[in-house]
Design a protein around this nucleic acid. Sequence first.
DNA 1: AATTGCAAATCGAACGTTCGTTTGAAGTCA
DNA 2: TGACTTCAAACGAACGTTCGATTTGCAATT
Lengths: 199, 199
Amino acid sequence: MTRPDCRSKLMEVGTQLFAERGLNGVSIRELSHEAGASISMVSYYFGGKEGLYSAVLQEQFACFDQIGEIMEQHAGPVDKIEAYIRWTIQRHRNNPHLLRFYTSELTNPTTYFPRIVAPAIGKVIRILVKVVEEGIRERVFRQDAHAVNAVLALAGMVNYYFLSTLATEDLISHSPDQDEQLIHQYREIFTRGILASAP
Amino acid sequence: MTRPDCRSKLMEVGTQLFAERGLNGVSIRELSHEAGASISMVSYYFGGKEGLYSAVLQEQFACFDQIGEIMEQHAGPVDKIEAYIRWTIQRHRNNPHLLRFYTSELTNPTTYFPRIVAPAIGKVIRILVKVVEEGIRERVFRQDAHAVNAVLALAGMVNYYFLSTLATEDLISHSPDQDEQLIHQYREIFTRGILASAP
DNA sequence: AATTGCAAATCGAACGTTCGTTTGAAGTCA
DNA sequence: TGACTTCAAACGAACGTTCGATTTGCAATT
């Protein structure tokens, strides 16, 4: 049997608490107590409270590196859009904390925003903009579409859904089946809208 | 000449600082100093730091009461959707702080979330769901549309746009003209999608 | 018109608490 | 033994609040 591993336990508890209440909403006293460790362990392993937060943030946003490969596995703008939706939904399912760090850093940026968060988000947005521009060029998407606005709309649609569930968790139960429905719904709204007839 | 009015000055500075850094990111020492008042004034007028935050929050979310009248001034689902988009955009233009309180409370709710924030958001969502359901019933919207998901998608689209501008304010300059373009874009994406041809 | 009286407003100091960090000693394992 | 962990205690700083004293604004009184 392995040791309880104080360091990773601090990461685990830090992730949970920082996600729920933000950097300033958590004291290292409560955090270390929750982890069953002494207060000094945070400074010992991470150089301080902010160091732990920084480590947690880096771990949370590491998955954004995948987006490049994910996109390459699909051809054509519409398929890539669906791939992005699917990837985002699975990301939120696999890690329910990520969205909190995401929006919390967007809304009230810490000093780590420029180094960790902004590049991660920027990378995804930039790739998606290229996808939409590709779609416009190939005349799959409308010629009057504004690529940046469209991408922000898409990202907003998908992320905001989960943001809503954070506050009203009772509203939406989830199963793999319902996720497929959700993916379908959002792809349809983004590509075809919700009008019954074509203009 | 009127008095500097310590109380309203505290509200003003409190709005600014709480929006930027959240409830726990601001000390009443810094806040009162910024307002040119003594530390004790916060407790005197608002009963404490949390009292000031609560007052600011209530003021910020008061505008959500308008949504009912706004909707009644428009007939038909599509027009009502556009009215919502326009109302939301103008709300963010008139008050650049609101969105930060909005997402901050969604992500890391304070004790005031259930009393102030949730009812305000819930009211808007509920009204929009009725609009979409009306549209489905009247066969203006697609029969397979999921009303709640559609509304969350719409709200996400519009709000997320401004959330993005919070982090990268350089990206998007704004003028009334560009706002009209934005309203048009988002209404089109929501109702018609961005596909070049109808399916 | 000037003076008085009083409640509201404002202040700076002080309080007790909690914060994040540091420290030196004790424990653990190879 | 020696390097790595862990701990409890202590530190100074910052926190939000309270308190008594002072100032201010205005209505009542002279």
